[in-house]
Design a protein around this nucleic acid. Structure first.
Lengths: 220, 220
DNA sequence: TTTTTGTATTTTGCATTCAATACTGCGCCG
DNA sequence: CGGCGCAGTATTGAATGCAAAATACAAAAA
């Protein structure tokens, strides 16, 4: 194993632990414990934590240590809001730049999602959905946009809201996807952009509403 | 001075050196030298470098050290492209959320810019311009958007293209600003967004063209 | 003269060590 | 009985030390 790989691996490893939900939001990161888990000393580990903090996945409190970032409701809303703009912009660019092969791949994913919807397999549907949006983002052919998108997406994934969509909303999301694919095929950038934006805003509303109903009962 | 402040100060300090152009793109960051300049040991310095690398201001080559990031022409174009979307979105949100005071402040900046334009003071105009766009971005009231915007802006500022706009283009930019202010006053989000986007795309074209003419002569 | 190769020096990456701050738990006092 | 203070411990932040890699340089051979 190369020498520098160590540091980057540590970043990637901890990031995975966070995004996979193994390290849930708010949990304290004990340096010593993580060192033993990852088999490295504190120096590279601390470097990794600083990096993850700049990525927004970790919060550092001076002299008190680091913890997995737990976003406030408003911050979650803000991330979704920005995501809506990035998705919309991705869609618009994708309409100009997508290749036939990429379009086919996206259509294939869409059909896969139709199947998963019919089969009522929500987790697989989510994974497929993520991949589809990723493909659109990649089709925009802008690596800076891509980086930004991926970074924000990780912050959201770290929160692990696998919302259990009710049937009506799921149906609607599927239908929206269908229309979005049509717009992409027609290379109608403006239309796709506005649909994607609306789609994400919708998602934001659903998840924020769910967060509120999930928190309130505990308080009462 | 607090204990943790040290690390963050190191990040801020080096970042300033880069954004101010004291450390120009491509230059190698000698750890030992920087340690002496900043009066810290290598540990916090290296942490800072890793952070700056995640911010995109520094490139790290394994076992070879760090250097101030020098973007390719395509990458610069990509950053501008994303900026155009962020500015547009900021404008749209600002139209919904801006306070009368914020609007007044922006109008004041605009008038200041008119004066500077008349006085032909380009550097001051640029600073004012930057502040105006910052204010719009802040008026969008989305801290995540703000963070992303600031980060990208720093990467561009590090490149230090203080382009010496010809009169016609400068006039045009000033006029566009006037129209943008009108749209903001009218709370016409869609209009402001499209204008801002066009404005930044314009800026991108100007700067990329200038980069090409600045590079080609050296090669020939 | 140019290239190549072997060595010395520098520089990077990581581990360890040291200092300072925060937490814990126990006794003491109110 | 409960709150407060103080010692002890743990944990964080930074400096130092050490091994591996890269660079620089010089001498020798083509």
């Amino acid at each position: 194993m190369e020498r520098q790989a160590l540091h980057d691996n540590v970043v990637g490893h901890i990031r995975d632990l966070i995004v996979e939900g193994i390290l849930p939001p708010g949990i304290k990161l004990n340096e010593r414990a993580l060192c033993e888990t990852l088999g490295v000393s504190r120096t590279p580990l601390r470097e990794a934590i600083k990096v993850l903090a700049t990525e927004g996945l970790v919060d550092i409190t001076p002299n008190k240590g680091a913890s997995v970032s737990s976003m406030s409701e408003t911050e979650i809303g803000e991330v979704f809001e920005l995501m809506s703009a990035l998705e919309a912009f991705s869609g618009e660019l994708a309409c100009e730049r997508i290749s036939p092969e990429e379009l086919s791949a996206i259509k294939a994913l869409h059909y896969e999602m139709l199947a998963l919807h019919a089969r009522n397999d929500l987790p697989a549907y989510y994974r497929c959905n993520q991949r589809l949006h990723d493909r659109i983002n990649e089709a925009a052919r802008n690596s800076v946009l891509r980086q930004t998108y991926v970074g924000l997406n990780r912050r959201l994934n770290a929160l692990r809201f696998r919302s259990n969509l009710n049937a009506a909303k799921w149906d609607r999301a599927v239908q929206e996807h269908g229309e979005m694919i049509k717009a992409l095929e027609a290379r109608d950038g403006k239309l796709l952009a506005s649909m994607l934006r609306q789609h994400i805003v919708q998602k934001k509303e659903i998840i924020l509403a769910e967060l509120r109903t999930a928190d309130k009962p505990q308080a009462s």
